[in-house]
């Protein structure tokens, strides 16, 4: 696959210190990459540097095999979508959507034709002559998306575009936006602090912290086998033992009685049900483990009462060591897992 975006050793320094530190990665054409991290990790700054709104230094900053590091924001074929839709309040919806064509000196007819086509794509044609303040938050983001897509950008940057929407609307928008992006074949970087959103939107995920990319990979790779403690804490689905060992949720099983534990069970822990919910027909249990003080969500065969005691177990092969300097939280050399009973 062709590389769309290729970055090596990108640095961004403010007076207070480094905001971005030797960031390097590449994105393939047509790929959607989620950039996940806690707030302050440098995600938004990274997008603004790529868009050219913020200055930065980089050993390599290439888009479609062209060095764009000296290009102005105006010249870069990149569109950035912010948290707020930032529709221009003094223009109609159609004028907003066609703004990118207007600056490229398209004539009015072309602009309107393209504008209406994209409005149709985002299902907003009947709003064409309204003003942004007459549209709801979700509608405004859809218009903003149309405004971004109309310029056929080589790269679309989305900075938590759904953060301001309510939960149910957010769920709907995720799937819908991903559908539109894939349909258009857009290469996109999608910034979010929401784990679930990152997994849903991204073909791949970059995990960011302290101004650098800690880890990258397909959603399943990252959630099931995080490289180190920090990634495990940010995105891993499972439990972390003594800051050194990770057991993926996929490898954990639940039984109701101690007697049901199989012989192969290596890691054993008693816990209590904190909540119970059903998604896509599957029952999930929210559990709190007594000794390791860990919370974990696991699929179960049937619903259980909150407060019920259960046993959680995993085979020895499921234990993954976590590397990286972050394990220094504990100097304890003894095994990270201490089964209550070894059978």
């Amino acid at each position: 696959m062709v590389q769309a975006l290729s970055i090596q050793k990108l640095n961004k320094t403010y007076q207070k210190g480094n905001v971005l530190n030797e960031v390097s990665f590449s994105v393939k054409k047509g790929e959607i990459v989620s950039v996940m991290g806690a707030s302050g990790a440098g995600k938004s700054t990274l997008l603004q540097c790529i868009a050219g709104i913020e200055s930065c230094t980089a050993v390599q900053l290439e888009l479609d095999q062209q060095d764009i590091s000296n290009w102005s924001a105006k010249k870069r074929p990149i569109v950035l979508m912010f948290q707020d839709s930032l529709l221009f309040p003094h223009m109609t919806v159609l004028e907003n959507v066609t703004y990118g064509l207007r600056v490229r000196r398209y004539n009015k007819q072309e602009r309107e034709r393209e504008g209406l086509y994209y409005l149709k794509k985002v299902d907003m044609v009947e709003h064409a002559n309204r003003y942004p303040h007459q549209c709801s938050g979700g509608e405004q983001q859809r218009i903003a998306l149309a405004r971004a897509l109309i310029t056929k950008p080589s790269l679309l940057l989305l900075d938590e575009p759904f953060a301001r929407l309510d939960e149910s609307l957010r769920r709907m928008m995720r799937t819908w936006v991903k559908g539109v992006l894939k349909e258009e074949g857009v290469t996109a970087l999608f910034v979010t602090h929401d784990r679930e959103e990152a997994m849903l939107m991204g073909d791949r995920i970059f995990v960011m912290a302290r101004g650098t990319v800690l880890s990258s990979g397909k959603p399943a790779e990252l959630t099931e086998s995080p490289e180190n403690l920090e990634v495990a804490n940010l995105i891993g689905e499972g439990i972390v033992l003594e800051n050194r060992t990770f057991i993926s949720a996929a490898n954990l099983s639940v039984v109701l009685h101690k007697a049901q534990l199989p012989e192969s069970a290596y890691y054993i822990q008693e816990g209590t049900v904190t909540h119970c919910f059903r998604r896509h027909g599957q029952v999930f249990l929210g559990l709190q483990l007594f000794t390791d003080k860990q919370d974990v969500i696991l699929p179960a065969a049937g619903e259980l009462k909150v407060g019920a005691n259960v046993w959680v177990w995993a085979e020895e092969s499921a234990l993954q060591p976590l590397n990286g300097g972050c394990s220094s939280f504990s100097d304890d050399p003894k095994p990270a897992f201490v089964g209550e009973n070894e059978i």
């Binding site: 050219g52 709104i53 102005s72 010249k75 990149i78 912010f82 707020d84 221009f88 703004y99 405004r147």
Partner: peptide, 20 residues
């Protein structure tokens, strides 16, 4: 941000000033 938004959409400084 309005100005940044317009710039990433391809507008020049002058265009941003008069239109946004």
């Amino acid at each position: 941000q309005q100005e940044s938004q317009a710039q990433t959409l391809g507008a020049s400084q002058v265009h941003v000033f008069f239109h946004i």
